[in-house]
Design a protein around this nucleic acid. Sequence first.
DNA 1: ATCCTCCCCTAC
DNA 2: TAAGGTAGGGGAGGAT
Length: 847
Amino acid sequence: MLLAIIIVVALFQGGYMNAKKKKLKTQFSEHESTESTEGGLFTGIAIHVNGYTKPTSEELKRLMQQHGGKFIQYYNKTDVTHIIATSLTTSKINRLTNQKIVKPEWITESIDANCLLPYQDYVLFKPKWQNNPSVKHSVEASANQSAAPPNTATAGNPKFLKEFYNNSRLHHISSWGSECKTYVRQLQAANSFPGREKLLEMERRDDDDHGAMTQCIMHVDMDCFFVSVGLIKRPHLRGKPVAVTHSKGKGREDARSEENVAYEMAHWQKKHGGNLGSKPALNSMAEIASCSYEARAAGVKNGMFFGQARDLCADLVPIPYDYDEYKRVSRILYDTIASFTHDIEAVSCDELLVDLTSLVNEVQMSPLRIASMMRSEIEQRSKCTASAGIGPNILLAKMATKRAKPNGQHCIPDLTAGQELLSDRPVKDLPGVGRSIATKMAALSIVTCGDLQKMALNILQEHFGPKIGKQVKDFAQGKDERSITSNKQRKSVSAEVNYGIRFKQEGEVLNFVHQLSDEVHSRLREVKMKGKTITLKLKVRSKGAPVETAKFLGHGICDSVNKSVSLPLATNNPEVIRREAMALVRQMNFPADDLRGIGIQVSRLESEIIADGGITRSILQFTSIRQNPSTEHPEEKPDSPPTSSLPPPTSSLPPLPFLPSQMNSSLPSPMPSVPIDLPSPSQIDPTFLAALPPDIRSEVESACIASHQSRQPAKSSKAFRLPQPKKNHSPGKSPSNCITTKSPGKTTNHRRGKNRSPAAKNAAALPTKRATAAKQLIYANTPKVNKVMRSTAVTQPAAEQQVNFCGAVSLAEVKALLNEWIRTTEALTMGSSENSASVDAFWYKEY
DNA sequence: ATCCTCCCCTAC
DNA sequence: TAAGGTAGGGGAGGAT
Ligand SMILES: Nc1ccn([C@H]2C[C@H](O)[C@@H](COP(=O)(O)OP(=O)(O)OP(=O)(O)O)O2)c(=O)n1
Ligand SMILES: [Mg+2]
Ligand SMILES: [Mg+2]
């Protein structure tokens, strides 16, 4: 049968069809489509049926006409909105046009549901055997033959990052989480409360005059959020087990042709109404973002692999993501709650905390009644349900929500009730208690919160630390002192990708790091922050781990290795971030093809204060002014908005000893002597070094290297750190090797040396430390470093642009000079300077 | 004690 | 196929 298909396909590929089409087209040059008489379901939709279909073409034509759609007999690109086909085998126009190719079930099921269902659920699956070289009909297949080895789906492809982020649910919920926090602040600026006014107009009831709680917290969380949103457009799936996932219900296909043939046969058979009695276990490694409560009843959980979930729930229906819709509904949630009160804390895109205390007092209504109003408003506006929990504190409000779900609400009136409710619950239900802590607790025979209540505080603290021990004990008793805040300040900004990372050469790695740096930079700009620490986070295939991962392009079993640099001044300069990140990559020096994940994080943040008329001075100007005060006329620069992530046009400004953004500290310098850190070796402008007498230069270099080797706290009171008389061992710095393993539904990191009991840890960490120290040595040991610096220095600007260090002859003098320069510059400068950025770009070219 | 860095863990 | 991100809390252990 397969052979027959191939032959048919081969025929179609030839000129036969083209000729036929042309001929027909001339015959029916005008209106080939049939308009409907009754407007309806398919208004605006024009289908063209290709090949044989289960409901026949004639039947589909009739159905379309009956329900307000068009049926186009002879394909033309402009009129046809969807192509209907049962098998791609005969869909030869695939890829010659960008048209949607959809299964006929889209039509029939839409009619059954009396609702135009998303065509995305019915896009035709493309059997892999089409890529078999013996079947040369696929445009894509032949293109791929000659394509470069880097798979288009991997990070080597320039379009990868964007594509990945567009599809990553975790990226979306994470950035929405941040956005929600910002959005709350924005909402708080407004001053109208339609929701609250509605409450005020309502009649009071007997149950409204509750004794005033000292504090009343409500937690609201959408029920199976992604699924609920997905079901808006899929009413026919309500009541069924549904999961939002990238899987289309098929899972990974093995490349072996036999299986592909078997798959194709099954596919074919299915299309022809054959009932496949026993379905083999599905091996989709796509994660489930959210599943309906029907699916949960079968044991399916958020985060589970789809294949695994299908084993638990054979009729689990996969539906695709719709990020725009989640965002839309999330806004409805926030808008709705904010129409009642502004005492809100964003938890995530589908979840928030509300301090009801003052609202309850103002409207004199019971918290549950208020919750009820809010929830029905949410459902009415969004067509999605939310659940609400109410309690005297955040903890109990959250616990109440768990009890209330789905589509319900629950109030825990006081601590006693809370303690009662908690005593049965597994410790895992407490916020902050995850897999790791729960496991440790189980080992101590602590399973329920009741068990936890009975434990002595000091025992818990012994095992889990002072804070966690205390918190866990308090939580188990329903105690929680945290209050609701909408003004938390950001502490870090990062971008990382642990999927699709497959490189062959270091060039690809650097190129990707470049893209990530720009991403981080742009995120920093968004939040108007800059930071003093840049961390490169790598995942590296573990020794012995298979090169081919279980999940398609997943990270597999990895070691995570991080390394950071501490900058003397906070930066948000894309060039600085990029250079530092790249320097870190080079230092870590892992084989490109073993990388499985890359991330860049900026921390120790300060706010970027951009004032009007910020002033930038280069050290050249500064030193020349110092020598000749009469020339003082600091260059005034109107504040230029942060530059785009592309390097700005190069100008021939004099180079700076440090990178430009480092002059932009927002900290007013409080004292005459500003403590500064040494920049890392890569941060030093080569021209600066070149301008120094050789002996001082090498002193500066080694000081930089030493200081960054030993990773001193950046806030040291020492202005300049001399080479530390320290041994190689650099304590906090050893990147800890981890094995990332996938265990049921979760990724966990295990310390190689197993448990973190002090003794065991030291022993286990030792080899790692050594390896790291060795790497640092290679870097610090200078031939390399020096070479890089010298080679760059060769291309330094003309001599007259070099820094004259006012005759400084010692490191101490250089240090004093630099301190003065930085201090005075800090006082003057704000914002980023286009000129400094271009200097930066210049120097970077040499890298 | 308290701070720092480098992690691990948790949550969505 | 699949899209395993990201921010915050806090523990360990060294430096101060
Ligand atoms: N492992 C996870 C957990 C959550 N999410 C996404 C999808 C969820 O719909 C959304 C909200 O997470 P919740 O924890 O609130 O879970 P649900 O809303 O799906 O279900 P519940 O009714 O339990 O709140 O975040 C995800 O992508 N992956
Ligand atoms: Mg939810
Ligand atoms: Mg939630």
